[in-house]
Design a protein around this nucleic acid. Structure first.
Length: 465
RNA sequence: GGCUGGGUGGCAGAGUGGUUAUGCAGCGGCCUGCAAAGCCGUGUACCUCGGUUCGACUCCGGGCCCAGCCUCCA
């Protein structure tokens, strides 16, 4: 039985889908005004893993995964003005970049990827409903605000009480608001800003309303899982609950999931702090699968500390796994009932405990190596098939081992595969003639070029460092 | 100030009321022409002070420290 830590109740709960034939999950995606950083990579990868596991449990066609794109907001407008281009050109560029990054990280596309600018009808409709029901008001300046005092359970998700929030208020209060905690649903357009027609004049949606409108439109007023980064818990998700439940009159989400932050030097990585690494920057130095491994090697709710040292560790670990899979005959049958499979699923079922699941993968790798040494290639292959089968749920170990171990040909301007093969052949000739000095000279030469040789079982294999 | 979450071996990172996480690095051994890879073995690890208990790193309470949210942020 899958257990999920629910941010709303602050405890692990058994996961019971509303409709097992259609498990529904919505995740807050990117605001596309810049390249994605490693924090975004974490959301993409973590919920991709959740998506994969739900599909494993409920069936490929019985899960609907929606991840939105926020393609209109203040920062987008500001950036577009700075670069003197239409905001849509800016957002298209970064949406393409995001899709490239996601694909590189092995993130499966969501079933639906709604965009704010393409959901105006639903957004305006929801705001109108909130006005009609008395949960919102129009201000003098043409903005429409949500009246927080009308929603009695406001603060439930983030564990805050209205009085505390008011006491802690430390932001210049927009004078148009009746209460500092009220938040904007519709922003009246200033001259020159992108805008849409609405019953309240030209303007654009506030940040929170789009997710309420898009999620309920795609998944219905009540769905199973809503996810996102921990920083969205308040106020974004709190406001989503207030908007959605007030508008639809039904419970919004059963399970709230929040992934922890990525840190650099023990400080949160964020755009506002400027201490972020973009995915594409990191991918210039590390294989995407190494980045994915690094992300899943920590539990999704824990902090994840970004450093070269940790990425190097991830690379070494992944190398160990792929090395175990090297040269195993393919096509062996997977024994789903194996003890390792049971423990692997037990780990993932416990609030997606990927580190513990990964420990099982290493035990399989060791078993493969033992069996191979013992000459039992058949059983080794079986364990290899199981290893790949289980790792697939994490989106790992799906490439031919050689492709991971040997890297891309000509990468970073080193020796080509052909040149390496030629040197290996020359060395093996020398070895056959017991010219050890020459053989070792070639091996050292390759080592300098970042190529490691391994002689075993009468064969020499090589890999790039 | 209010509210969350956390402090595990050299590093990373799970977990458990009493018995090996796992990975990386280190050390010893096997294998190897020598290496590498692999295998076997190996490390006074659980912030602090009390309490509960036959027994706590694991439960409870105080303290210290760290991070996050309370403002845009995945």
């Amino acid at each position: 039985m899958l257990q999920i830590y629910n941010s709303l109740t602050r405890k692990k709960e058994p996961f019971e889908p509303i409709d097992p034939a259609n498990v529904r999950m919505y995740v807050c995606g990117m605001t596309v005004y810049d390249y994605c950083h490693i924090g975004h990579a974490r959301v993409l990868v973590v919920f991709d893993m959740v998506n994969r596991y739900l599909r494993h449990l409920y069936g490929e066609n019985h899960v609907t995964y929606v991840r939105n794109i926020t393609d209109i907001d203040d920062k987008i407008i500001q950036r577009a003005q700075e670069s003197h281009e239409p905001f849509t050109r800016l957002t298209e560029r970064f949406i393409d970049a995001m899709h490239e990054d996601a694909e590189a990280l092995g993130v499966l596309p969501p079933d639906e990827e709604p965009r704010a600018t393409l959901s105006m009808e639903q957004i305006i409709e929801m705001i109108q409903t909130l006005l009609d029901k008395g949960y919102a008001y129009t201000a003098q300046n043409g903005d429409v605000y949500y009246d927080v005092s009308r929603f009695s359970s406001y603060g439930k998700l983030s564990g805050k009480r209205l009085e505390e929030l008011r006491a802690g208020e430390r932001v210049a209060v927009d004078e148009a608001k009746e209460d500092p905690l009220d938040f904007v649903l519709w922003k009246a357009a200033k001259p020159g800003e992108p805008c849409w027609e609405s019953p309240w004049g030209k303007g654009r949606p506030g940040w929170h309303i789009e997710c309420s409108a898009m999620s309920t439109h795609c998944l219905g007023c009540h769905f199973d899982i809503h996810g996102g980064g921990l920083d969205l818990q308040f106020p974004h998700h709190e406001n989503e609950i207030a908007q959605s439940e007030a508008a639809t009159g039904c419970k919004f989400v059963n399970y709230w999931m929040h992934n922890g932050f990525v840190r650099v030097d023990d400080e949160k990585m964020s755009k506002s702090l400027g201490n972020f690494f973009t995915i594409r920057e990191v991918l210039k130095r590390y294989d995407p699968e190494v980045v994915r491994y690094f992300i899943l090697a920590s539990h999704y709710r824990s902090p994840l500390n970004y450093s070269d040292r940790n990425l190097d560790g991830a690379k070494a670990a992944l190398t160990t796994l792929y090395t175990a899979l090297r040269e195993l005959p393919a096509g062996a049958e997977v024994h789903e009932a194996a003890e390792e499979a049971r423990r692997f699923h037990e780990a993932l079922s416990d609030d997606f405990n990927t580190p513990e699941a990964m420990a099982v993968l290493f035990e399989l790798a060791r078993d493969i190596n033992r069996l191979r040494s013992a000459g039992d290639v058949e059983r080794a292959s079986g364990q290899g098939a199981l290893l790949r089968h289980l790792a697939a749920l994490l989106g790992l170990l799906q490439r031919p081992p050689q492709r991971f171990l040997q890297g891309k040909s000509g990468e970073s301007g080193g020796l080509s595969d052909q040149e390496i093969e030629r040197l290996v052949a020359a060395r093996n000739q020398a070895r056959a003639e017991k010219r050890w000095v020459e053989a070792d000279r070639i091996r050292d030469e390759l080592k300098k070029e970042g190529v490691i040789l391994e002689d075993s079982g009468g064969k020499t294999s090589w890999r790039r460092e």
